[in-house]
Amino acid sequence: MHSTTQSSLNLLSRNFIILSAYLVSSFAFATEIPLETITAKSSSQTLYLQLDAKVEPIKSATVAAQTSGRVLAIHYDVNDMVPEGAPLLEITSKEQGAGLAGAEAELAKAQAQNIEAQAQFERYKALFPQGAISKGAMDEATSYAKSSKQAVSAAKAKLISAKENVNYTIVSAPFTGRVTGKWVEQGETISYGQALLSGYATDKLRAVFYVPQQYRQQLADLTSITLSDDVSTYQSDAINKFNFSTQADQSIEVRVQLENQQQTLQVGQWLKAALPVDQVDTIYLPKSAIFQVGELTAVYRKQGDKYLQTQVRLGKQVTSAEITQVEILSGVMDGDSIINDAASYVLLLNQTQSDNVQ
């Protein structure tokens, strides 16, 4: 056991000595190698608080029966997309049709009676000044003309109601959307007010998330926000910030309206909401400038007339225009001159050492 431990310590010591010798020799030959360098520059970066946002419908509805009858057909099922105005469900219409026919007959009768009453009133009105008609008969004719005219109006209103009852036997979609619930089946007898189908509009949805109280000022300043999933990014300036909280932790509810014309969002899915909370100065370097061996992460930074290996601490990576940049949290300062291609520089150092040894 003691022998194994001693061997490990000896191996570690040899590796350390080799690495130290390598670094020293690297410094010695650094000025003789052609270098491609970059200058580290700090830039202002926005820090974001990532919050989970759940997608919800803005407009949803449950259509109910406005008449009674038996279900003849259901044209859509749960999860189907339905265009606005499409017939969802059909109900028997015999009773409603009979009511419509009766209303039409009653209107025709009222109109005929009204024609007769108006004609009689006109005759009496011409004869009354001549004394051929008594005042009582004239008053009766006037009253009859008015009541028959009102009867026509009442019959027309009844006909409109009867037509609506017939229309109610075909239940139409109030908006373009997706069916989420079916509460009746074909052949069932339904009554007035009974729930039939449920759904939501898919063209506009909202993302709901909760912001901790400590960021209420940042939330107050928020005018636009970015939300994203694994595939798409969504930008919105339609932000509804609640002025009260119903949560146990007193966090603030925020609702963000999202356009969904391309049907890329689904109700119930989760998005990441990026709330800007601070501005910091950050240095980014190309990934090629980072030299990594095991747990060692470093860059080659100019000091005097040499480029020395300087250990750095890395943050997040950002890729744009096929170039990967790495955030430098510590080890590099604004204005430092850095070797752009650390791997090639190390190879050149090794080659230079080999040539000098020979």
Rank of each mutant, 00 (worst) to 15 (best):
K94D: 14
F121M: 13
I74R: 13
E122W: 10
P87N: 04
P87R: 04
E84M: 10
Q120Y: 08
I74Y: 04
G102Y: 13
E104W: 06
I74S: 12
G99R: 05
T62H: 02
S68G: 15
A103C: 06
E106N: 13
E104L: 14
V55H: 01
G85T: 00
G97A: 11
E95H: 13
A105M: 09
G99I: 01
T67N: 06
L72M: 15
I74M: 15
T67P: 02
A119T: 08
L72T: 13
G85Y: 03
S60P: 02
V63A: 03
G99N: 11
A73H: 07
V78E: 10
G69E: 01
V55L: 00
S93A: 13
I58G: 01
L100H: 06
A73W: 05
F121P: 02
Q113K: 15
Y76W: 06
A86E: 04
V78C: 10
N79C: 10
P57Y: 00
L100Q: 09
A117G: 04
E56P: 01
R123H: 10
T62Y: 05
S60F: 09
E90K: 15
E104V: 10
N114V: 00
A108E: 10
P57N: 03
A61S: 12
I91C: 04
A65E: 02
G97S: 09
Q113S: 13
G99Y: 05
E84C: 07
L100C: 06
A86V: 03
G69N: 01
E106C: 05
I74T: 05
P87H: 05
P83N: 13
L72W: 08
S93H: 07
V55C: 00
A101D: 12
G97C: 06
H75W: 04
A108L: 12
S60K: 06
A98K: 10
L88F: 03
E116H: 11
K94A: 15
E95Y: 14
Q111I: 15
K109L: 13
Q120G: 05
L72G: 12
E95A: 15
P83G: 08
G69S: 00
L89F: 01
G102I: 07
A65F: 02
L107Q: 14
H75A: 09
A73C: 04
G69W: 02
E84T: 09
Q96T: 05
T62W: 04
V82S: 00
A119C: 04
E106S: 14
P57F: 00
Q120I: 11
A101N: 11
G69R: 02
Q120K: 15
K109F: 11
E56V: 05
S68W: 06
A119E: 10
A105C: 09
T92G: 08
A108P: 07
D77N: 11
S93E: 09
E106D: 12
F121D: 03
R123N: 08
M81K: 08
A64T: 09
I74E: 05
I115W: 10
A101F: 11
L88A: 00
A108S: 14
K59C: 06
A86Q: 03
